[in-house]
Nucleic acid binder design. Structure first.
Ligand SMILES: [Zn+2]
Ligand SMILES: [Zn+2]
Ligand SMILES: [Zn+2]
Ligand SMILES: [Zn+2]
Lengths: 150, 150
DNA sequence: CATCAGCTGATAACGATTATCGATATCAAC
DNA sequence: GTTGATATCGATAATCGTTATCAGCTGATG
């Protein structure tokens, strides 16, 4: 499991004279064991279950490596903290977040993606990525509100 | 100039037993005098030119009031810091940012906006706003790259 | 005048991230 | 195996944007 990601990271490190170490492998395993959008703190916690000696600084450093290697991606921000998600074999998608309960729906909408390409062309830009976050109230929270309000 | 915004803020404050003070008026004027996307620090700097006694805390507090009153809106984030822009008589728009030089183009694309509505309907959410940021390389930076690279 | 709530600026506190540092691990060259 | 250069580690301090705290001020009310 997660063999691909390990190989990707190993190659990324080797290509710039860096080393695949136990700590980095532990952080990678911890990150891959978590789903959806996780904070550096959550990754640290998961990593310490595998090896209690892993330090917080190493987690931050390794997250940066994972991001540069294309294995992680900054997904959004939980108010103050950055949240990361898997980027390898995890196709591009955007996020629809409930402002009441925090639920997150991942979606892809091809007509949005196409329209974005048209915007790039309109202004002569070459695309290098985008971030789209829709905010709203999910069906569950709508029902809750309707019940309490009526 | 800026009479509308002043009246909006005054009413917002009065409705909840708060007061229109000199410091708040100064911060509002400073904010309105700046264009595009500004940090709390930039607003503080502009406010101190009007009244050197304005404190940093007051700027943060007033920005929150302006946001709640509908006069300001959190536009994006300059890495770590939040950036604000005018929200009154300043129609909704999204941002196209050059990752090389930092230039920002504001745009509205009705087909993107419509497609977003369709996403809300698809998942049964009630919309409460969205944030779309496109990143790319502007024509100027493309030319610069082509010249130096060739 | 006395009171009371809101407001102010300075300062301390906070939390996420980054930089620093001495100690340790790695590994090629000798 | 020894050496030495370099990378890495975890702990800790430092940074930086933002918030909370607090003592003094202001302006209205009675
Ligand atoms: Zn997208
Ligand atoms: Zn996601
Ligand atoms: Zn939009
Ligand atoms: Zn804008």
């Amino acid at each position: 499991m997660h063999g691909d990601e390990r190989i990707i990271l190993e190659r990324y490190l080797r290509e710039r004279g860096l080393k695949m170490t136990h700590a980095r492998e532990t952080v990678l395993t911890a990150f891959l064991s978590l789903e959806s959008h996780v904070s550096a703190d959550a990754i640290h916690e998961a990593a310490r279950k595998l090896d209690p000696g892993i330090g917080q600084a190493t987690v931050f450093r390794t997250i940066k490596l994972l991001t540069d290697a294309g294995l992680a991606r900054e997904a959004c921000r939980d108010d103050n903290a950055r949240l990361y998600e898997h980027a390898w074999n995890h196709a591009h998608h955007d996020h629809l977040t409930c402002v009441e309960c925090g639920a997150v729906v991942e979606f892809v909408d091809s007509s949005i993606e196409r329209a974005q390409e048209a915007v790039y062309r309109r202004f002569g830009f070459v695309s290098s990525g985008h971030r789209l976050e829709l905010y709203g109230i999910c069906p569950g929270c709508q029902a809750k509100k309707a019940n309490s309000g009526l």
